[in-house]
Structure formats: structure tokens, C-alpha cells
């Protein structure tokens, strides 16, 4: 099974990198968008008997390492 894990900054946490990226998009002439937020994406192959088991293990990984839950949220998708 594959775990696809998205780690994003929590609402209210400033994202200066997102802001700089937004400025760069603007300078390229893009418009009609707002609130650029930068995040991280992890993909890993998990050996598990069920999707639930895989998700539980991925959740542990997020809580213990992949996300800093002081500032970040995570979303897990198992396929």
C-alpha cells in the first residue's frame, strides 16, 4: 500500500515562504489567486494487512516525526 502524506502549516501560522512564492507568481503575471501556502508531501510504501492499519502507522509517523504539530497539520491518504 502507498501512503500519501500532506503536511501543511496550521491556519494562523505565518508562511513567509508562501508569501515570497506569491510575490514571484505575481511578477510572472499570474493573478486572480490569493493565500499561497507552502507545504510538504511524503510518499511511502507501507506493508500492512488493511488500509486502517496502514493509516494508523502513518499517523504515528506523522505524530512522531513527519509533522511538527505545534505548527503543522497533516493529512493521510492510503491507496
Amino acid at each position: 500500500m502507498k501512503a500519501m502524506i500532506k503536511v501543511t502549516l496550521k491556519n494562523g501560522v505565518l508562511d513567509p515562504q508562501g508569501k515570497a512564492i506569491m510575490g514571484s507568481l505575481q511578477s510572472l503575471g499570474f493573478n486572480g489567486y490569493d493565500n499561497v501556502r507552502q507545504g510538504k508531501y511524503f510518499e511511502l510504501d507501507i506493508e500492512a494487512f488493511s488500509k486502517e492499519e496502514a493509516k494508523a502507522r502513518a499517523t504515528d509517523m506523522c505524530e512522531q516525526l513527519l509533522a511538527n504539530t505545534v505548527i503543522e497539520n497533516y493529512e493521510i491518504e492510503i491507496v
Binding site: 501560522v13 505565518l14 513567509p16 515562504q17 515570497a20 511538527n68 505545534v70 505548527i71
Partner: peptide, 9 residues
Amino acid sequence: GALMRNANL
């Protein structure tokens, strides 16, 4: 707490 990227990058 947490130590994030400097505000001025």
C-alpha cells in the same frame, strides 16, 4: 514552541 524560517527568509 517551534523555530520557523526567519520572517525575512
